[in-house]
């Protein structure tokens, strides 16, 4: 869906991105993570030509973005940023309808779409006529998300989308994003400097340091040991282990052969993290998974 092919970006003497090659499959929720100054925002902005590569090629839907019309490309890709940038002189409804208006949709269709989106991001329809200044941080961020989704783009770019809201709202919005991603199947590329957020959201992780790719791949595979030293340093060993447990399913780790009679039952779709919590609560070293069994040793990295 999105491919970076040996891409470098140079700002004057400084090289923000150095020879990055990575591909993001359709439907992924790919998280770009790394310390500040690692070039993750620049990499994100290459996708809708808000930045231009000094070398290499960026392809979106198989086409080189350098050949695309920038305005048309941007209207086809949703964009959410930390500071939101809502238009302060427009109502919430008009903010959300910006891209449809740019695309020349008729008014009734825009109004209907705005109503749909308010429901999708779970905003009170009564807010539609308010100005952005009257919104809370969380509400404003939901409006920003709705605006990015307005013309139903298949790709959504999010630059530190939850950076400006408090931790409780952030947790809520992350859950909301996971839900919307599952419901819409869009390809999402999200930038964060928060490793925990990255591990919680990502189906795919792209780890950057000083403009270079450190690691990229499916989140579960990257979180499995032996993780690269930089990954361990970035995420911390505990978070990495916990995340791995929450990504792997019981059905994949269960061993053949029945469990002891008293063993508690767990569904094969459950995560290893849930299995571990059940073991702790029941004091049971083995769980029953249908006709198979899951000993606690199966939770350990092999």
């Amino acid at each position: 869906m999105i491919e970076f092919d040996d891409v470098s970006v140079r700002f004057g003497a400084a090289e923000a991105v150095r020879g990055v090659s990575v591909a993001i499959p359709p439907g992924a929720l790919a998280v770009l993570v790394g310390p500040s100054g690692s070039g993750k925002t620049t990499l994100l902005r290459l996708v809708n030509r808000m930045a231009t590569p000094s070398a290499g090629q960026v392809r979106v839907r198989g086409e080189d973005v350098a050949l695309a019309d920038p305005a048309r490309l941007r209207r086809s890709v949703g964009y959410v940023m930390q500071s939101m940038g809502l238009f302060p002189h427009w109502s919430v409804a008009r903010n959300i309808g910006t891209v449809p208006a740019l695309l020349g949709w008729p008014q009734p269709r825009i109004a209907a779409r705005v109503e749909e989106l308010l429901a999708l991001v779970r905003l009170d329809p009564a807010l539609a006529q308010r100005r952005p200044a009257a919104l809370s941080g969380g509400q404003a961020q939901r409006v920003g998300l709705a605006r990015a989704l307005a013309a139903d783009p298949d790709i959504l770019l999010m630059d530190e989308p939850f950076g400006a809201v408090d931790p409780i709202v952030r947790r809520e919005l992350r859950a909301e994003l996971t839900r919307i991603h599952a419901a819409t199947g869009k390809t999402i590329l999200l930038v964060t400097h928060d490793p925990i957020e990255a591990l919680e959201l990502a189906t795919h992780l792209i780890v950057l340091r000083e403009g270079q790719l450190v690691a990229a791949g499916e989140a579960a595979a990257l979180a499995a040991p032996p993780a690269a030293p930089f990954l361990r340093a970035l995420f911390g060993p505990e978070a990495l282990a916990l995340r791995r447990l929450s990504l792997l399913r019981v059905g994949d780790a269960a061993l053949d052969g029945p469990a002891p009679d008293a063993a508690p039952e767990i569904a094969p779709e459950a995560s290893l993290a849930e299995a571990w919590i059940l073991m702790q609560e029941r004091g049971a070293p083995v769980l029953a998974v249908g006709a198979r069994h899951l000993p606690w040793s199966a939770l350990l990295p092999r």
Partner: peptide, 26 residues
């Protein structure tokens, strides 16, 4: 506000639209 201009660019507004829809009214 630079953030507003950046958002306008990212949503695919051209120079003319940005002037008429954002810069002039603000």
């Amino acid at each position: 506000d630079p953030a507003v201009l950046q958002a306008a660019t990212a949503l695919g507004m051209g120079r003319g639209r940005m002037l008429a829809w954002v810069r002039l009214p603000l």
